[in-house]
Write a protein that binds this DNA or RNA. Structure first.
Lengths: 336, 336
DNA sequence: TTCCCCCGTCGAAGCGCTTCGACGTTTCTC
DNA sequence: GAGAAACGTCGAAGCGCTTCGACGGGGGAA
């Protein structure tokens, strides 16, 4: 292994000069710098990460904790991870991958051993057991999603409330007067993340504001459940013409069910969703949707973290404004 | 930060004794060890990863390079990554996540800076540009998949040739005499990984051996392409009763197409696939399939790497035997 | 009893890097 | 033209850990 003293000898300077030439933390004459750089290239020198981490107490590594729990939409997680890695590299950092499974002990371990400088935690629960730990850690962190008590933590996510509102407003703008929200599986509403509730809040608020008739239906992640909800909706709200779907797994089966029940999309029924763009695009009937911008969230999370590492203040809460893409699944209400 | 000297002072011993008590590399009296461990707990001591890496020239971190290329089945990659992380943790290692995008420079960087001790490279191409680099690196690596010239490298993958054979034998055993392979998109066969070719080899060899009539059809990853292949098959091989599918994206559309063309699965047509179990299970018609055992491959890859790091010799090639799970999509050939 | 060896522990060196203080040399500033 | 300030470089210390050699004490072999 070639080390800094080798470079120094080769270039005829002291090791500290090499270090300064590299970091630019002190002025070095142009000529010396050139010579040092030439030696570095000639010898193929790379600073030893561990030594540097020891001397600077900065590892230039970020931890990323990914969820494993069933019901998580895998492509979203992957896209998120890739964008975190890419953005981190752009800021000269690497990414250590941890699984949820490791739990609090895992977080404490990588933080306390100084393996990582900072942490990104996905899939945050309302009352996440990791919150006190994250608050007490001496390294900064960013949470994806909002817990019930976000004070003292940096959180980022799509503004799900606004997303719910936006969907209703879109439908209202097309003349729809009776709408329904088909949401996440029931258990999500009780135990999990806050985003499901926020969608409901936004949906309901916007419907009330616009004086639309509305209803909310949790729905399990199976085609059968989708079918059941479709039938129930037709029975309970015969005048229904607009549906908002916030449940990746049943988006397609639900549309199929509606069509089998004789409702054309978007002819008889307009459908909008909150889901990844790729999903909305890939369906038989491309769906007008609010994007789940996992890539952007990942990039922004890294940027927040890097700022914190740089000693700058960052907002505690970052809500990404929803962006809607119109596709073929919504239309102006047919006047009967 | 609490360091080893703090523990030493607290326990009334020297730092080296603490180190030996922890590593067990020299005998330490039971009583002293107890005292040291008590101090460690009392102070919450964690060895500094960078310092340890510097002293031992071992970071206890593995690099995992994940593919980004389109056409990769994302859940498979994710499952693989999770199993790598889990297994690595079981061997007291962590995992650094790199994207294909970083290329050779990225590999060189993490290896030469001693950020990682070893590398796992997924999605290996037949003539992968990273091969010479991996051979020259001073750290061990394991490739997922087999390049054209695997000599000097450690590779692991499902035995795709055996998988192709196994599918044919299964169909032959059920009395089928005319079979077809619907494979990966055409471009895969020219530029990409070797596994596609190996399936073809196994399929063809087994068909010839069993004197079955057979044909091979690459197929693009779109429902339309699936439909086209289905029609073509019926036209060209009217006596066709057995199909092997090696293409995740079109498995479902292809079955749909067959049924729309009047062929019941498995009544008129038996279908087997080489794909992840979750996919095979989740279809409307659960498909008899050879599993793509990404979890197992990941775990085995880590174990190979750990062995190499321990100085033990490992086989250059590891081929995982195919495992078939029978589901509802194959049946004995109806005797007309 | 003597010698040797092993056990248990300590002190010091060293891993490769950064950074602080110091010092000679220029370059301004008034 | 003298003092101050800035420049460019060096040497040494230190980051926290492991490990090598050394050493005193106790037990076994002779």
């Amino acid at each position: 292994m070639v080390k800094i003293t080798d470079v120094a000898r080769h270039a005829g300077v002291s090791p500290s000069t090499v270090s300064y030439a590299l970091s630019g933390k002190r002025p070095i004459s142009e000529e010396t710098r050139q010579r040092v750089e030439a030696s570095i290239r000639a010898l193929g020198y790379r600073p030893h990460a561990g030594a540097r981490a020891l001397a600077t107490s900065r590892s230039k590594v970020l931890a990323l904790v990914v969820p494993l729990r069933a019901g998580i939409h895998v492509p979203v997680v992957m896209q998120f991870a890739v964008s975190v890695v890419t953005t981190a590299r752009g800021h000269d950092h690497d990414v250590l991958l941890l699984t949820q499974e490791e739990g609090e002990e895992g977080l404490r371990r990588v933080a306390d051993t100084a393996l990582v400088d900072a942490l990104i935690v996905m899939d945050v629960q309302l009352a996440d057991p990791r919150l006190p730990l994250l608050r007490s850690l001496d390294r900064p962190s960013v949470l994806i999603g909002f817990p019930a008590e976000p004070a003292g933590l940096t959180c980022i996510d799509l503004d799900f409330k606004a997303a719910g509102e936006r969907c209703v407003e879109h439908l209202a703008g097309l003349g729809h007067r009776v709408v329904a929200l088909v949401g996440s599986p029931p258990e999500v509403y009780v135990r999990q993340t806050a985003f499901a509730q926020r969608v409901v809040q936004g949906f309901t608020a916007a419907a009330d504001r616009g004086r639309l008739a509305s209803s909310v239906h949790p729905c399990a992640a199976s085609p059968a459940a989708a079918r059941a909800v479709a039938e129930q909706l037709l029975w309970e709200q015969p005048a229904l013409t607009g549906v908002v779907v916030h449940n990746e797994a049943i988006l397609e089966p639900l549309i199929d069910a509606f069509e089998e029940l004789g409702l054309r999309v978007p002819g008889d029924l307009s459908v909008t969703a909150i889901c990844p763009d790729e999903l909305a695009e890939s369906l038989r009937v491309p769906v007008t949707s609010i994007a789940l911008p996992s890539g952007e969230v990942g990039a922004r999370a890294v940027e927040l973290l890097v700022k914190k590492l740089g000693g700058k203040a960052v907002p505690e809460a970052t809500l990404l404004a929803p962006r809607m893409t119109e596709r073929g699944s919504t239309a102006r209400r047919a006047v009967a």
